[in-house]
Design a protein around this nucleic acid. Structure first.
Length: 601
DNA sequence: CTTTTCACAGTCGCGCGGATGGGA
DNA sequence: TCCCATCCGCGCGACTGTGAAAAG
């Protein structure tokens, strides 16, 4: 299915035939390259991802219906966006009120309408693109095949860190992995239905970029003649909805290359052009058991776009802020951390990034720990459903602690979505307003909690254990590195100083982190409270925080090794120690909820 | 001058093979 | 004594950003 490119024969399959059959009229009629499903290069210059605008979206968040795509009142397509690219306007004409054609949305790669129109809808974080002809379908089933999915960007905090400086991704001939990599958690799929999950990378704007004077500036028009694969299918595709929802879906193996002529590993490589801005998109396509798309089903494809994952492809890093962030956060670059010793012998609370061994240890010691941590920092939830419906689902974690109760579910979730939408930023820089996001950090995590009790390991994360928690801690602890390298070498840098690296560092980021920690503590408390409340909320919160600060593991005395592993263990212990994996502790309600989730899809 | 390519050093995960210990 | 499982160390390969050289 995904083999529109000649070289992408890997994806050639019976699905291709199905794809052709399912091609929408809009595609056929408007896109001369319609047959080239993934032929980004063949798209006109007008085929760009268009970041959503903020105002309208944010305004809609107050209305729960705005979370539902295709609702007449949920129009998110903004002429302003379209106006920037005339063709978008044109294509927008075929879009439904939500800004994209449901009949084409499912096949973004072929559909200019989708590509242009989906952005407002997608970046609206219920980027559901629906597919097939059923658009509109407010009546989409909430369960079973065709149900709408919800997607989390698992490592969004890390993405945001990079996004502040305009993320850059190295591309090489042999292919370079993305960092941060795309990692999602998916909910709302049919447990038994089969899905293909894949990532597509499309041009984010029609410009050619260059790094000049310490900042990225446009420089002419983008070259749209790029060829090569633009899609990366998750290696576990196809698989059941239960499988996709059971664990984090990581695309850490995805590689970016500028080698158009690459003939090997095409299935793992996405061909990009240097100095162009790209937007990754996640696609979830329902297929039959043998991996062929079922043309009889109306709702088959869903697309999710996260503006903060935009990046500029480069052959060499331009912005040293980005370089330093990569070094600080990418375990593979650990060798370049000249403050490595201090980083990894420092108190837990001061450590910047996880070492791969940390995560593996944690994982070995407490199976599922890694994933149990994730909900604590699931800051983002792409939801197609009315929030109240979501929160009323059996997956919702009991919110019994004071910290959480301080924010009503509706209020919290709404602001959370508002935040997401605001982050659409202006369509040019797409800078995200982080403030609301940070403020609602904890509340947004809750829905994710239960699901994250993974039953499986994630191979990818053994390499990139940048759980949202660990990544968040890197924001303010890495100042030394910035101070050392960035300041002297980048007098022009927008954030040349340690404190300037993140303007919020001195006065905002740290409180933010603490707030996040509190949020995690809050979650812990909520969990523990539901399971006989060994720790009160305040105790759990303060204790975990104290442990982090004082380098004390929550589970008692430990060696240096165990201390290092407490990054995940400490905050998660309250939950994981009571998970079904633990013999010592009784099953938690959370775990029960986890099962119930699958028992009641 | 800008951009790309390449070799390099450092780190880590994984797999293999040998050593060790327990049970039949 | 043999078999099996587990543990440990080593080497290889993958991966990273760096910095110089090459290419345009």
């Amino acid at each position: 299915m995904l083999g529109g490119e000649g070289e992408s024969s890997t994806f050639s399959s019976p699905k291709d035939a199905a794809e052709e059959r399912r091609k929408s009229p809009a595609v056929d009629g408007n896109d001369p390259a319609a047959g080239n499903r993934f032929a980004e290069h063949s798209m006109g210059s007008d085929r760009y991802y268009i970041p959503s605008t903020i105002s309208k979206q944010s305004g809609e968040t107050a209305n729960p219906s705005s979370f539902i795509p295709y609702t007449p009142s949920g129009t998110v397509y903004t002429p302003s966006s379209a106006a920037r690219y005339p063709s978008a306007l044109h294509l927008g004409s075929v879009l439904p009120p939500t800004g994209f054609s449901p009949s084409t949305a499912g096949r973004s790669h072929f559909s200019p309408a989708y590509q242009l129109g989906q952005s407002p809808g997608c970046t609206l974080y219920p980027p559901y693109t629906g597919s097939g002809t059923a658009l509109g379908s407010m009546a989409l089933p909430s369960t079973g095949p065709g149900m709408r999915a919800q997607v989390y960007l698992c490592n969004r905090p890390l993405w945001l860190k990079f996004h502040r400086h305009q993320t850059e991704m190295i591309i090489t001939k042999q292919g370079r992995r993305m960092f941060p990599f795309l990692s999602f958690n998916i909910a709302g799929l049919s447990v038994t239905a089969h899905y293909n999950v894949f990532v597509e990378v499309v041009l984010a704007d029609p410009n050619h970029w260059r790094f000049q004077g310490g900042k990225w500036v446009t420089c002419g028009k983008a070259d749209n003649s790029s060829q090569g694969n633009k899609v990366y299918i998750h290696p576990e595709s196809p698989n059941t909805g239960a499988h996709w929802m059971r664990q984090e879906i990581s695309f850490s193996k995805l590689k970016l290359t500028n080698n158009k002529g690459t003939s090997h590993n095409t299935s793992q490589m996405i061909v990009l052009q240097s100095l162009h801005k790209y937007q990754p998109r996640l696609h979830i396509v329902e297929v039959t058991e043998d991996g062929v798309e079922d043309i009889n089903s109306e709702v088959k494809t869903q697309c999710f776009t996260f503006p903060e994952t935009q990046f500029i492809a480069v052959t060499a890093y331009q912005n040293t802020d980005i370089t330093q962030l990569k070094i600080d956060h990418n375990p593979f670059a650990k060798g370049f951390r000249d403050n490595y010793d201090s980083m990894y012998t420092a108190p837990e609370s001061d450590r910047l990034t996880p070492s791969p061994t940390d995560s593996s240890r944690a994982h070995q010691i407490v199976p599922g720990t890694r994933y149990t941590m994730q909900p604590l920092f699931q800051d983002q939830f792409v939801n197609n459903l009315p929030q109240n419906r979501f929160y009323n689902s059996e997956r919702a974690v009991p919110q019994t602690n004071s910290l959480l109760s301080s924010q009503t579910e509706d209020g919290a979730s709404q602001r959370w979505f508002v935040t997401s939408m605001q982050q659409g930023g202006n369509s040019t820089s797409n800078k995200l307003d982080l403030t609301p996001y940070e403020g609602e950090y904890s509340s947004s995590l809750l829905p994710y909690g239960i699901k994250s009790l993974s039953m499986q390991t994630s191979h990818a994360l053994s390499y990139y254990p940048d759980s949202p928690f660990t990544t968040m801690s890197a924001g303010w602890g890495s100042r030394a590195a910035y101070q050392r390298k960035v300041t002297p070498s980048l007098p022009w840098s927008p954030r040349p100083s340690p404190t300037g690296a993140f303007p919020e560092d001195s006065g905002k980021v740290k409180p933010q982190v603490e707030e996040e920690v509190n949020g995690s503590g809050a979650l812990i408390a909520s969990w523990t409270e539901t399971q006989s409340a060994a720790l009160s909320l305040d105790k759990a919160d303060s204790y975990s925080l104290a442990c982090k600060r004082r380098r004390l593991p929550l589970n008692g005395p430990s060696t240096e090794d165990s201390q290092s592993s407490t990054k995940c263990e400490d905050l998660a212990s309250a939950t994981t120690n009571n998970s079904s994996y633990s013999k010592e502790a009784p099953p938690s309600k959370g775990m029960a909820a986890y099962y119930s989730f699958y028992a009641n899809p």
